[in-house]
Amino acid sequence: MTEPHIPLPPPPEEVRHVACVGAGVIGGGWVAHFLARGYSVTAWDPAPDAEEKLRRLVDAAWPALTQLGLAEGASTERLTVASTLEEAVAGAQFVQESAPEKLELKRELLARIDAAAPAEAVIASSTSGYPMTDMQTRAANPGRLLVGHPFNPPYLIPLVEVVGGERTDRAAVEWASRFYEAAGKSVITMDRELPGFIANRLQEALWREALHMVNNGEATVRDIDASITEGPGLRWAFMGPCLTFALAGGEGGMGHMLDHFGPSLKSPWTRLEAPELDSALRTAMVEGCDEAADGRTIAQLVAERDQGVIDVLRATGRLSGAGSVAARERSGDA
């Protein structure tokens, strides 16, 4: 990343107006999150029914956000849906782009956002895998472009991974990390680009092994999901896999664990190469998920998931940031 050459943005805690470009599941989730934290949000999406779907998503998320704790003055009425991208970003202090995962589209869109947004606005992409180095190639001011990778749904899952590209100013990365923290997110600031970032790479390893087991008839979708929700997932909600494994070493910690279990790493337990996603495997996965849903609709499953995440966050004491001082200070900006 380059030395700072971007105009000085406002202090992250003073941001009042956010723009969200792309209003699908991820972009709409960002809109809901920012509204709940007391920001004014302007959104844009090219789909003809985008506004209707976006407002429906925000309304569906609002009960969960209310349980989490809204910032004073937080309101769905602070949402404006613009008719053009340029109108959406014109007055923004921060821009979150959440377009589909198509590299050429990302390049074009980020260049348009860069051309239209105020010079001091930092611009982040929600990409789940592309490095910013590959996306910032057409922007006139690439120093302010970076990745702010969320997890679905962004209005509930705290994590956001922040990393810049080769032409991103380090000052922009540091500013964005502080902004996301002020907005109530849990931030990992990465020192270097990594395809898929951190969490997605870990998820991908588990996902590929799950596909192999279904493909080979070794386990059902229900078995695989239960093995996580009734097993290590309960620990991972508050303690990651590395520290969890360290506890397996008893008082000797990770050192004893590695000495004791290290040789098993050479056992051919896992198959990290992805299996061929043919029609048979696809059918097995789809039918397995239908069986696991047991008659529940997608809406019912979403509500169940949202409540489950809230319960876990509450049980593990991670709701303290909902009424932060920064959020309360923004409440005066109606």
Rank of each mutant, 00 (worst) to 15 (best):
H5R: 14
H5K: 15
I6C: 14
I6Y: 10
P7M: 07
P12Q: 02
E13I: 08
R16L: 05
G24I: 00
I26Y: 02
G27P: 03
G28M: 00
H33E: 02
L35W: 06
S40N: 11
A43H: 00
W44K: 00
P46M: 00
D49T: 10
E51N: 02
E52D: 13
E52Y: 12
L54C: 03
R55V: 01
A60V: 10
A60W: 08
A60D: 10
A61R: 03
L65D: 00
T66F: 11
Q67R: 14
G69E: 04
L70K: 06
A71T: 06
E72F: 11
E72Q: 13
T76N: 15
R78A: 09
V81M: 04
T84V: 08
L85W: 02
E86H: 08
A88G: 04
G91I: 11
V95P: 03
V95D: 09
A99C: 13
P100V: 07
P100K: 07
R107V: 05
L109F: 11
L109A: 08
L110C: 10
L110A: 08
A111W: 06
R112D: 10
A116P: 04
A121G: 08
A121S: 12
V122F: 04
S126Q: 03
G129P: 06
P131C: 03
M132H: 09
D134R: 15
R138P: 14
N141P: 09
N141W: 12
L145T: 05
L146Y: 02
F151T: 05
Y155V: 10
P158V: 10
V160G: 06
G164I: 03
R170D: 07
A171I: 00
E174N: 09
W175V: 02
W175A: 02
A176T: 03
A176C: 06
S177F: 06
Y180G: 02
Y180K: 01
Y180L: 08
K185H: 12
S186R: 13
S186V: 13
I188T: 15
E193R: 02
L194K: 10
P195M: 05
R201K: 06
E209N: 04
H212I: 01
N215L: 15
V221C: 13
I224L: 09
A226Q: 14
T229E: 14
L234H: 12
R235Y: 09
A237P: 01
G240T: 00
T244Q: 04
G252H: 05
G253C: 04
H260P: 14
L272N: 14
E276H: 12
S279F: 12
A280C: 12
R282Q: 15
V286L: 07
E291H: 08
D294A: 12
D294N: 10
D294K: 11
G295Y: 03
R296I: 12
T297P: 06
I298Q: 12
L301S: 13
L301G: 08
V302Q: 15
V302R: 15
A303G: 11
Q307D: 13
V309H: 09
L313G: 04
R314A: 12
T316L: 10
L319R: 07
S324R: 03
A327F: 00
R328T: 14
E329C: 11
S331M: 05
